[in-house]
Amino acid sequence: MPTPLVVSEVAKSFTMHLRDGVRLAVVEDVSFSLKSGECAVLGGPSGAGKSSILKMLYGNYAADAGQIIVNHGGKLIDLAAASPREVLAIRRDTIGYVSQFLRTVPRVAAVDVVAEPLVARGFDRARARERAATLLSRLNLPERLWGLPPATFSGGEQQRVNIARGFITAHPILLLDEPTASLDARNREVVIAMIAEKKAEGVALLGIFHDADVREAVADRIIDVTVFAPGARAA
């Protein structure tokens, strides 16, 4: 099995300059790798740094130390040291991300929000919309909502738009930050099935799932984040 993502000795802290420069260490010495076709789940209590790790892997947070080696189209790139342009290219082609909350753009219809990552990769807009519609209907989003901007949608509706947007492309790595948090049982099942399909396609998935049932259903292994707690190795 190929290993598209290798994380080694990554550390993250926040320096709060507005609070007299207090330094808040979040994680250190984060090391793991991800294989194609598996779904690994970050485990540990709230505040352990699961979300921070995910955000570093997406380039959304900067890593203080360590390497995040990504197989980007056959080329190995250290995301922790990559230029903004490289990070953007990796996001476009290699790493997908389903965030917890949808950041809505005024006036853009849900179907176009979902189709956008495909259009960005050069797909014909009409075809991208078709794919988007298929996903939205699979996630049981009422068709009357497709043409509306998601800003006024409910939490669950927004999350389904977000999931569809994350799953529409064929990124070899997919990061999932609690994608099922606000979903009902029926839609949770849909997402579980979609994750299984991604695995079958050889996608490497890394997720955070608070819902134990979902975690059970999708996780091939749990990466315990508490071992990355600052000072944990020394103790």
């Binding site: 300059h17 507005l18 955000k55 380039g59 900067a62 903004p84």
Partner: peptide
């Protein structure tokens, strides 16, 4: 300087943190 979402979500410099907050 950096990716827009990185600068806004993980501001490093004191002034940027002040702006974002």
């Amino acid at each position: 300087t950096g990716l827009t979402d990185r600068v806004l979500d993980d501001p490093r410099e004191p002034y940027t943190q002040l702006l974002v907050s």
